[in-house]
Structures are given as structure tokens and as C-alpha cells.
Design a protein around this nucleic acid. Structure first.
Length: 432
RNA sequence: GGGGGGUUUCCCGAGCGGUCAAAGGGGUCAGACUGUAAAUCUGAUGGCAUUGCCUUCACAGGUUCGAAUCCUGUACCCCCCA
């Protein structure tokens, strides 16, 4: 049995926990059952949830038995933790779809099939939906003094915001009750599965301790809790966000290439933490990457390893290969002799235009027109300007003149020409 | 109700009868440099076409050979006096 606490500690992943010695002792005695929850607020998880997924995986590798809980029931209420405003409720259909999407993703991280590995995947809807309101109040609610609930950060931070006259502030009774549901989840897993430990992000501490309290009252037993720090950037902003939104784990929402690129671009100041928090690289390797970053920052080896290892984890070997190939091409490699399918997967995120194949015949298609068709230029004048300044590339080769004509010889694949303006604005033109 | 000021190209902001597609700055785009960083430097920045033409300075009308610039009316905004 690996000392998981020791590992989490050097990685900087322990933010808060119940009595450390006790917890460590309990974990050292043999395979232990623990759980972490995932909110089905969307049909895909994102970079922020990676931390939780990897955490369960670490526990499993260390010989423990992780339960991944998907909040099919709690998702109907909405966790107020870390939220400044009341949220809209999701429809049941939406929620069902989200749960299905998320479960598939969690499977990539935790092994639920091997009985010996002991992982399991549960949905709290399965036990929550059967509860009657009265029954829940008598059974669970009775154990929660409101004055204690009021002191939780998730509630406190929302109480101030409502009475100042600000629009829509405060907290509804519904969200206020959220912690009871999550606390009950813990108690349920404790009773049914012998789960004594709940882990989560630091914003979950209040919900976790609520569960520990409930178990103490209901079962007269001691349960444990542990949180990891939020993954933030050195400038204080959240990791895993781009101008265009969150970095998702699903290839449909964030292509493997875009995912890879996100991590390649992590700042020097943040990459060390990312390696520790998110990857399974060992201590020596990470420390040698730290050293390399000081002596040769321009090689960006830390970023490369980070991007490789996460892309591999989330999208598999194939996804990583696509991302790497796309990276080569996006950064200058000449594009030739590829297939439409290859180009399609590499340039999945890039705008494209369809044109009649005949336009490549005869004299050919003026580049100026091609740029406008591909929406790389807003007008022909703008297209000419780009050409004059040397900012136009055809299949990654700089266009040599303003009068250049595109013909069938310029096709990079069966039917596609790749146009680029500047360093990385790409567009495809398909001729059919 | 009375008096004064404003409305300019993506944004801020000059312009006050021709030399104005309209200074300057910001932004944006491109080039150089670079670590797929930051900073910096250079160039471009209404549209269409080879000179040139067309549309643009709140809106509508007018004066003039000629208006973003003058006059009249309309809309919106700001300030002052009631």
C-alpha cells in the first residue's frame, strides 16, 4: 500500500483535512473506500474537474477503492458553493443527458470494471429520488441546526448580497438546502458501502464537514474529509479558462489540438503546479523539469510534458498523435500530400468555405478572391493589403505575389487548400 | 419654460467652406524580433477598380462652382437659469 498522503503532500494537493494522523493511519491499514462528487451541470467535464478525476485515480492506484458520484439529484438543486448568484434549474432531460456524458468521461480515469480495483460509479438520483419530503426532513433535516448552516461560507457569502437591494442576490431555500443533500450522500455511502472519506476541491469543505457531522449524529461514527487547493494561475485567475470559454474534456467541445495547446501555453510560473496537481509524473521527473525550466526556459520542456501527458490521459494515444501532428502543421510545416480526412481532423476548429471545383480551372482562382471566400479578409482591399505585407500563406508557404492564381496544383489534399493569414489564423477552402 | 454646448470613420478625439477618406491616440491586422511568453520596433487600417470612381462626418432639406465645415428643421445627449 503506497502512502497516498505522502504523495498528495509533496504534490501540494492537501489544502484542508480532518486530523492528518488519524487519516493517514486509517488509509495505511488497507484498501479504503472514499468518494468524490461530480456536478452534471454540463454534458462534459472540463479542466477544472480534472483535479478530482486524477485524485480518484491516484487513490485507486495506491490501492484504495474510489467511488465517483455523479450528482443526478443534487444537480437538480445547484450547489451554492463558490457561486455568487442563484442559478437556473436544469431540466430533467438535460440532466439525464449530462449524467450520461459525464459518466463516460469518468471511466477514462477510474477503473470500474476490475472487481479487484474496486472502483464504482454511482448516481445519487438512485437513492435521493425515492425520498419523500417529510421523510427527509424527519430523517436528515433534524440533524442540521440552522445556526451552524448559516456559518458556512457558501451561505454566508450569499446572505450579505441580498439585503443591500442588489438585484437577485441572496440565496433561495432550495440552494440553502443543498448541503443537506450532499451530506446525506456521504452518510448513505457510509452506511451502504463503508465509505469513510470524502475528497473534493477546497470549495467543498463546508459540504464535506456537513456530511461528517451528519455521520457522527446518525451513526455515531467518525468520517474523514480532505480537500485540494483550487487550481489558479499566478495572476489569481482560474486555470482552465480561455477567451472562448472553458477547456472541456470532450473532443467535440475542445478538440484534442486545442486541449494540447492550452497546456503548452501555460505560463512558466504555473506549469510546475500543473505538473504536480494534474499529471502522474513522478517526483524526480517533475523536479528535473523544474531545474530545466530555470536553465533553459526557452525549451519549454515542462509545458510539453504537461500537454503530452494530459492529452494522452484525456484523449488517448490517438488524440495525442493528432494534436501533435496538428501542432507541427500549425507552426509552419509545409502542408502537402495529406488526405481530406487528415486535414479535417487537424483543422477541426478552423473556419472553412465551400467552392465550386471549376473555379480552379482555366486561369485559376485569384488568391485575393480566395482570401475573401475563406473569410480571412473582409474585402478584396484588405486581402491585397495582407498580400502586400507578406502575411498570406498557401498550404503554409508564403504567397509570392498579389496576382497569384490558385489551381488544382495547389490542393493540399483531394479537395482542400489551406490558407493562412499571419502566424496562426487558418482557413480551409474545399472544392467540390 | 428660458439660455448655452454637443452628436466625426471600430472607440476616444482633432477638424470649422476647397489641398479631407478626414490629424493624433487606442484597438485591430500584418511584418521584424522572440521561448507558440512579455515588451519593443515597422507598416497598414471605408469600398470597388491599373490613373480614377463610389459611399462616409446624427437625420432631412437648403445656400454654394464646391460643405464634415454655413443656414433651416428633426432626433438624442450634456450644462446653466427658472
Amino acid at each position: 500500500m503506497t502512502d497516498i498522503i505522502e504523495e498528495l503532500k509533496w504534490r501540494g494537493l492537501i489544502y484542508q483535512s480532518t486530523d492528518r494522523q488519524q487519516l493517514r493511519g486509517w488509509l495505511a491499514e488497507g484498501p479504503r473506500v472514499l468518494y468524490a462528487g461530480f456536478d452534471p451541470t454540463s454534458d462534459s467535464l472540463h479542466a477544472g474537474t480534472l483535479l478530482g478525476l486524477v485524485a480518484l485515480r491516484r487513490f485507486q492506484r495506491a490501492g484504495h477503492r474510489p467511488i465517483a458520484l455523479v450528482g443526478g439529484a443534487t444537480g437538480m438543486i445547484g450547489d451554492p458553493s463558490g457561486k455568487s448568484e442563484e442559478r437556473n434549474l436544469l431540466s430533467e432531460d438535460q440532466l439525464r443527458a449530462n449524467v450520461a456524458g459525464i459518466e463516460a468521461q469518468i471511466r477514462r480515469f477510474v477503473d470500474f470494471d476490475d472487481a479487484a480495483a474496486g472502483g464504482s460509479l454511482v448516481n445519487n438520483y438512485d437513492w435521493m429520488s425515492r425520498f419523500g419530503y417529510i421523510e427527509f426532513l424527519r430523517d436528515v433535516g433534524k440533524n442540521f441546526p440552522v445556526n451552524v448552516m448559516m456559518t458556512k461560507d457558501s451561505v454566508k457569502s450569499r446572505l450579505g448580497s441580498g439585503d443591500g437591494g442588489g438585484a437577485g442576490g441572496g440565496i433561495s431555500y432550495t440552494e440553502f438546502s443543498y448541503m443537506l443533500l450532499q451530506a446525506y450522500d456521504f452518510a448513505h455511502l457510509f452506511e451502504q458501502r463503508g465509505c469513510h472519506l470524502q475528497v473534493g476541491g477546497s470549495d467543498q469543505w463546508g459540504n464535506i464537514t456537513a456530511g461528517i457531522d451528519l455521520i457522527r449524529r446518525r451513526n455515531g461514527a467518525e468520517a474523514y474529509g480532505m480537500t485540494w487547493p483550487l487550481l489558479t494561475k499566478s495572476d489569481g485567475s482560474k486555470m482552465g479558462k480561455t477567451e472562448s470559454g472553458a477547456v472541456w474534456l470532450s473532443a467535440e467541445r475542445t478538440s484534442p489540438y486545442a486541449f494540447y495547446q492550452y497546456w503548452i501555453n501555460v505560463e512558466d510560473a504555473d506549469v510546475g503546479r500543473c505538473l504536480r496537481y494534474l499529471t502522474e509524473l513522478g517526483r524526480e521527473e517533475i523536479e528535473s523539469l523544474d531545474a530545466a525550466r530555470v536553465s533553459a526556459p526557452e525549451r519549454r520542456e515542462s509545458q510539453r510534458r504537461l500537454a503530452e501527458s494530459l492529452t494522452q490521459l484525456v484523449h488517448g494515444d490517438e488524440g495525442l498523435a493528432i494534436a501533435q501532428r496538428a501542432t507541427e502543421i500549425f507552426f509552419g510545416a509545409e502542408i502537402a500530400d495529406l488526405s481530406d480526412a487528415q486535414l479535417g481532423s487537424i483543422f477541426a476548429d478552423v473556419p472553412s468555405g465551400e467552392l465550386d471545383r471549376e473555379r480552379l480551372g482555366g486561369e485559376g482562382l485569384p488568391v485575393v478572391d480566395a482570401l475573401v471566400e475563406a473569410t480571412l479578409a473582409g474585402s478584396k482591399g484588405e486581402a491585397r493589403r495582407l498580400l502586400k505585407q507578406g502575411g498570406v500563406y498557401i498550404n503554409n508557404r508564403r504567397a509570392e505575389s498579389q496576382e497569384q492564381m490558385l489551381t488544382a496544383a495547389d490542393l493540399a489534399s483531394e479537395s482542400t487548400i489551406v490558407l493562412r493569414s499571419g502566424k496562426k489564423r487558418y482557413a480551409l477552402l474545399r472544392f467540390s
